[in-house]
Computed example of a mutant assay.
Amino acid sequence: MNFPEVQKNLNVDSIYANTDLVIKARIDRSEIQMLCKLVEGLGHLGIVTTTNKELGEVMIQTTKDCWVELKKLIEKMPIEIEFI
């Protein structure tokens, strides 16, 4: 494929460097699956990954634009969550 010279010089990493956001949180380990399902059902505002099941630690991957709305919704969920 032939791309214009301008596109060849774009640094994709720098374009998206300020958009990704990773939030670490701690919840009761019995609630991890519920958090995953609730966040998944919000129209892909974020993705939850378990980082330490024994301690109930999760990582929420989102964007800076989506985080404000996602945080408000998570705080209204029937889950006690501690952002760390």
Rank of each mutant, 00 (worst) to 15 (best):
M1E: 13
M1H: 12
N2V: 08
N2M: 04
F3I: 05
P4Y: 07
E5W: 09
V6G: 02
Q7P: 00
Q7L: 02
K8A: 00
L10E: 12
N11I: 03
N11D: 12
N11S: 09
V12D: 04
V12G: 01
V12E: 07
D13F: 00
S14K: 15
S14A: 15
I15R: 10
I15L: 14
I15E: 10
Y16W: 15
Y16G: 06
A17E: 15
A17S: 14
N18P: 03
T19C: 12
T19N: 14
D20C: 05
D20I: 09
D20K: 03
L21S: 03
L21V: 03
V22Q: 11
V22W: 02
V22M: 07
I23K: 09
K24L: 14
R26H: 03
R26I: 13
I27R: 00
E31F: 09
E31P: 00
E31N: 14
I32G: 04
Q33Y: 05
Q33R: 11
M34Q: 10
L35W: 06
L35K: 04
C36G: 13
C36L: 11
C36P: 04
K37H: 09
K37M: 11
V39T: 11
V39D: 12
E40N: 13
E40Y: 11
E40K: 13
G41C: 08
G41L: 02
G41H: 10
G41W: 01
G43S: 03
G43I: 01
H44S: 15
H44E: 15
L45D: 06
L45P: 06
G46F: 07
G46A: 10
I47G: 03
V48E: 01
T49Y: 14
T51N: 02
T51K: 11
T51I: 15
N52C: 07
N52W: 01
G56A: 00
G56E: 02
V58P: 02
M59V: 12
I60E: 04
I60M: 11
I60W: 06
Q61G: 07
T62E: 06
K64Y: 10
K64Q: 14
D65S: 15
C66M: 13
W67Y: 07
V68R: 05
V68F: 13
E69R: 14
L70V: 10
K71V: 04
K72F: 06
L73S: 13
L73H: 08
L73G: 05
L73D: 13
I74N: 05
I74P: 06
I74M: 05
K76C: 00
K76W: 00
M77Q: 08
M77C: 05
P78A: 10
P78H: 06
I79A: 04
I79F: 03
E80Q: 14
E80H: 14
I81S: 01
E82A: 06
E82I: 09
